[in-house]
């Protein structure tokens, strides 16, 4: 084996390794983390039902993965909730939204409404983290060997690049996730009530 051939083989090996790393890194398109921090009185049941309904109406499957109710301290109850919602858009794309809800010092209080009825609200602090991403080619099996991984890289980088970045990412981020966050803020009756993409209707072809 000549020196030149050795160099070429080494170069090819490095290239394939780099491509495989790239393949692994482009398995999903992540969105930036959003969070809500709130202190005051809110209706936890209403918030829960609202999120579940919102996602169900948009054909998401909603799962409550973790429900932790910690031992109450003198200040109140600490709860941790982890929800996941996913929607299979087509063969290629699956939208996934993850919620992490953590309440601190939460106490149930009875509130008398204007019409005289009494309702149970929660008083305390809540921290909600919303992460989301788009899974691509979940069930197809492009990771079986280097050749298939290479095919996937070609598709990602050349054939469907614009669609991944400009259509799917935008649609999910601005129409699903940001809208949900805005409506959740409204449910909590927070002062900040803005949703920049409220009138964004997409592209009219």
């Amino acid at each position: 084996m000549g020196n030149m051939e050795k160099k070429l083989r080494e170069k090819l090996r490095k290239k394939i390794k780099w491509q495989y790393e790239q393949y692994k890194s482009v398995g999903k398109i992540p969105h930036p983390l959003s969070h809500i921090r709130f202190k005051g009185v809110w209706d936890m049941q209403d918030l829960y039902e609202f999120v579940a309904n919102f996602l169900r109406e948009r054909k998401y499957k909603f799962h409550e993965k973790i429900y932790k109710h910690k031992h109450p301290s003198p200040y109140g109850v600490e709860q941790q909730l982890v929800w996941e919602a996913n929607q299979v858009v087509d063969d290629v794309y699956t939208y996934v939204i993850n919620f992490y809800v953590h309440t601190y010092d939460a106490q149930d209080i009875q509130v008398k409404m204007k019409d005289g009825s009494v309702r149970t609200f929660t008083k305390g602090r809540v921290w909600i983290e919303i992460t989301s991403h788009i899974d691509m080619y979940e069930h197809i099996g492009f990771g079986k060997n280097a050749f298939l991984a290479y095919l996937k890289i070609v598709m990602q980088s050349y054939l469907l690049r614009k669609r991944h970045g400009w259509i799917e990412w935008d649609v999910m981020m601005y129409r699903e996730v940001q809208k949900l966050i805005w409506l959740m803020r409204r449910r909590l009756k927070m002062e900040y009530d803005e949703y920049e993409q409220k009138d964004w209707m997409g592209v009219h072809t």
Partner: peptide, 13 residues
């Protein structure tokens, strides 16, 4: 479900 392309996006009246 095949490959779905959205070509008209929220035409509003």
């Amino acid at each position: 479900m095949g490959e779905v392309n959205q070509v008209v996006d929220h035409l509003k009246l």
